[in-house]
Design a protein around this nucleic acid. Sequence first.
DNA 1: GGAATGGTGCCAGTTTCTGGCACCATTGGA
DNA 2: TCCAATGGTGCCAGAAACTGGCACCATTCC
Lengths: 228, 228
Amino acid sequence: MVRHMRRNGIVTVAELAREVGASRRTVLRDLGALRDAGFVIDSEPGRGGGLQLDPRSVQATARLSVSEIFALLISVASVRAAGGLPFSGLADAGLAKIEQALPSEKVRDLRLFLDCLYVGRLAPEVDISDMGEMDPELLPAFEPAFLQRMRLRFRYRDAKGAVTCRDVEPQAMLILPPLWYLVAWDPSRDGFRHFRMDRISAPESVAGPPFRRRRVTFKDDVQPVRPR
Amino acid sequence: MVRHMRRNGIVTVAELAREVGASRRTVLRDLGALRDAGFVIDSEPGRGGGLQLDPRSVQATARLSVSEIFALLISVASVRAAGGLPFSGLADAGLAKIEQALPSEKVRDLRLFLDCLYVGRLAPEVDISDMGEMDPELLPAFEPAFLQRMRLRFRYRDAKGAVTCRDVEPQAMLILPPLWYLVAWDPSRDGFRHFRMDRISAPESVAGPPFRRRRVTFKDDVQPVRPR
DNA sequence: GGAATGGTGCCAGTTTCTGGCACCATTGGA
DNA sequence: TCCAATGGTGCCAGAAACTGGCACCATTCC
């Protein structure tokens, strides 16, 4: 809207009206609406006065799908939990606004998933030279596992390259940047196992009654993404 | 809008109209607008039919300030550059939508700043036991430094606790999770210096002509956030 | 004092939205 | 085979919202 600028970003109502092809009255009305919407527009009355938009108040409106919000939320949460200085507070504020715009049941789903997220620091001796890419399109397959507690089946390639088929109960997601792990109860082995996400392929939900949550404990330096 | 649900999330136009207090005609018009806006609403004609919203198409609309978008962008970029598996692709898509909604000059500003961002892995021998918090409200003070190349003045507390006042030319931001560093040319010392962000306080822009960009080189394992 | 500026209240005209109506296509049951 | 229940479209008059002009006020600078 504010395209034509005079000295230093200052513009008059008359110039704006001429530019947008609307009347002075309408421009003033629209300015009021913009101010109501949170834009900070300073005005200086009198000869030589004018309007000036505070650039810090410029806002964008975007329509995001739930999956995209999911991904943003996890990114920000992992940065924050890993000690993400110095802007994570602002990022949190942005996400809070996005959350407010979501239907309440979707917010509950996001919270359920965040409760399963943990972040820590990777031990320096771990070899990540073979780190692979994971197709982000696989994300939807993980949602039922954490939201409806449906068992998850996938193929897993272990450190030696051997590929096995797993059928597990996902309990937590562990982020040790740059690696992500799925922490799950493996009924066939009657114990917890962790799986590097970049070694998982062809994940799919398995029909059946929801499994039960189990208490997962980590070392002291692993923190939940959502503080308890 | 869709609150009252029948079997399995299926609802009829008549029920929606009764609920929202609008006419059947208006509800059908609004459904068309929602479909135009990208919502996937399946419909089944005939007796026993109805409407069903595909939950995957649920989108949120949020108004974010430039600072918040800035912070989200940096968070996602740092996760991706640090090998952020497995959802960074989706997060990128979300940020692209937010970017589209921004005025073009703001997008240019964000890109200028991203060009100064680098990510690597922290050497394991670095002691981070004294890591402090940084006030996210300080972020605006950094924007002129990277966008208009204005010199930055701040107080810095070094590893021994000694506090000095610095007056530097910011050249890059280096993220070594969980630490962030400001990489700057220090004219009074005629050389590059790096400053841990959590040890910076009271940053402020210094008036004057823009300083010139200098070539910053990092070790091989430090990557630019935006690929060259 | 006068001109240039932002700001407000009022009112008629214009535009857009709404709701009712008729009607069509499809589906399942009587 | 027919009928009721469903989504969907076109049309039109009335309602609601928006627009633009006008008068007027307060402030500032020349």
